[in-house]
Design a protein around this nucleic acid. Structure first.
Lengths: 209, 209
DNA sequence: CACACTCTGTAACATTAGTTACAAACAATG
DNA sequence: CATTGTTTGTAACTAATGTTACAGAGTGTG
């Protein structure tokens, strides 16, 4: 675990000195596939770095309708929690482990100091902000400019990308929630995708061809 | 103009020393209502601070469909252009003056130094990032969880808020573009809002009641 | 294997949003 | 004030998405 943390940070250009500090003050956290990691309304005091696995970040409204914003894959971090913490704001997200996952949690109070002292860490944090921002934009693009058929297909391809697997183990109901639509609609469109030879359907599994 | 810049920055907690530097290395830029300030594909080397007026930030797809992401009001800045610049990325936005506006343009190359040396500037930049991010989330919420009738009404109220005026001087066509729908649909729903006593319609003008 | 539960397929229908077409009102200009 | 271009209103229609209802297939458990 320490190894994977080290290689992720060093890949990001962080110097050994800071890596050691991150190892010292942080701690690991594991989550089983399906486990809820952050609930809306909570306030977290840590910035998580994903060492292994896959997290989904989902937005919810008052009536518990949902939409998937983006995934956090191995090696990625979510600097967004920074501001959420600095400004004492509440979390507006639901973060779920889509897979058995390992995180490295860094207490927030070191952030400002590191941002000040390490150019590499500044870059790391800003780059994380920017990546999240770009992903939100892509989500907006999908919702706005694609119809549901296209969005669904893109969803499957993105999931394939994120899990590096051609097999998606989800029920239609779960997919419908990520897209904020109904199960019936998803089933209908999935069947269409199958008829067009783009996917293959089984119970709790979709294979991308 | 220098006065308004100074009061904005000092309001944001920036110390006099840095304010003076910002005044020294930046320069003003004016834009008439309707003027295009940033086009998709361009690369800007400046971070703009809005001194007066109102900017709209719009997302476009390949077929020139559009959707309004958020407004930049007087006193606000767009630190997003930071990363856009650091990473040499292209701009994916269209920024338009919704009103006669005055901006203060700061060359990017000072950013890193200021972020390193001034805690206040760090806060300012991060807070800008966070505000933009929150606004994107609100946009996603609207698109995802509201129907067009509700979105349109919210659009009008937001515009009222941004311009601090109960009169909106836009054609139905312009509104339709911001919402990525068609003029006919907007006219239909506006008429409905009028019938329900929420607004009053005239040519090129909507009054919010 | 009997039972309960979850998941998927499909039909029929309702609602929302998008499109096409056209007429009338309004504004600007020579 | 005649002409042209823009804006708005409205009807009629199409397409996309959402809803309800139900049946059958698959899975897990005692």
């Amino acid at each position: 675990m320490q190894e994977s943390l080290k290689s992720i940070l060093s890949e990001a250009g962080i110097e050994d000195e800071l890596i050691q500090e991150i190892q010292k003050v942080g701690f690991p956290k594991t989550a089983r596939s399906g486990e809820l990691i952050i609930t809306p309304g909570s306030t977290s005091m840590h910035m998580p770095i994903v060492l292994e696995g896959l997290l989904s970040v989902v937005r919810q409204d008052e009536e518990a309708n949902e939409i998937l914003l983006y995934y956090l894959e191995g090696g990625e971090t979510c600097a967004m929690s920074l501001a959420c913490c600095i400004e004492g704001k509440r979390n507006d997200f639901k973060v779920t482990a889509e897979d058995n996952s390992v995180l490295w949690m860094i207490p927030m109070n070191y952030m400002d100091e590191w941002i000040q002292n390490y150019r590499s860490f500044r870059k790391y944090v800003f780059s994380s902000y920017q990546t999240r921002f770009d992903e939100l934009l892509e989500t907006i693009d999908s919702i706005t400019f694609l119809n549901l058929y296209e969005r669904l297909y893109k969803y499957l391809l993105d999931k394939k990308q994120a899990t590096k697997s051609y097999e998606i183990n989800m029920s239609h109901e779960q997919i419908a929630q990520h897209l904020n639509t109904s199960r019936v609609v998803v089933s209908r469109l999935l069947k269409q995708l199958e008829n067009e030879g783009k996917i293959e359907l089984e119970r709790n599994r979709i294979s991308i061809l």
